[in-house]
Simulated scan of single mutants.
Amino acid sequence: MLRRLREVTDPVTFSFDGCPVTAERGDTLAAALLAGGIDTIRHSVVGDQPRAPYCLMGVCFECLVTVDGVQNRQSCLMEVRDGMVVASQRGGRQVLQGNR
């Protein structure tokens, strides 16, 4: 498990799958989730295997989450915000059907 090297001095709180998580202002979402002890943030499209942040620089797409209702956000490229609502993803994104 990962842990912070320093105490959180400027905290923000967000939710992940309905549970509160406290992070340092300026953390990326992926880093905040890992530091909060969350090691599975999505499940793969093929095989439904657990996935976690891997490269932490926007290349691998293993850190996809739903943020404030928007799917497929790369958590390693997003800064945490107070009150943010984050949800894990399972499989591929859902396509909304519009009127044709």
Rank of each mutant, 00 (worst) to 15 (best):
V21F: 00
P20K: 13
Q74R: 15
V67S: 04
Q49H: 14
A31T: 07
P50S: 07
H43S: 06
T66E: 15
Q71S: 14
D17P: 08
L56W: 03
E79K: 14
G26P: 08
G69W: 04
D39R: 12
A32C: 09
A23H: 03
Q49P: 00
T9H: 13
Q74V: 14
F16C: 02
Q71F: 02
C60N: 05
L77C: 13
C55M: 10
R93Y: 09
S75Y: 04
Y54T: 04
P53D: 05
N72L: 11
H43T: 12
V86D: 00
C76H: 00
V21C: 02
L5G: 12
V12A: 06
V46F: 13
R81A: 14
L56F: 14
Y54K: 06
R90I: 11
T22S: 14
G98P: 11
A35R: 08
V59T: 13
T66R: 15
T28I: 09
G58W: 05
R93M: 12
P20V: 07
P53F: 06
Q97R: 11
T13W: 03
R81F: 06
P11N: 11
P20L: 10
Q89E: 14
G37R: 07
T22Q: 13
P50E: 03
V86M: 04
G36E: 03
E62C: 08
G47L: 02
C19S: 10
A87H: 14
G26T: 12
Y54P: 01
S44N: 08
Q89D: 02
L77E: 10
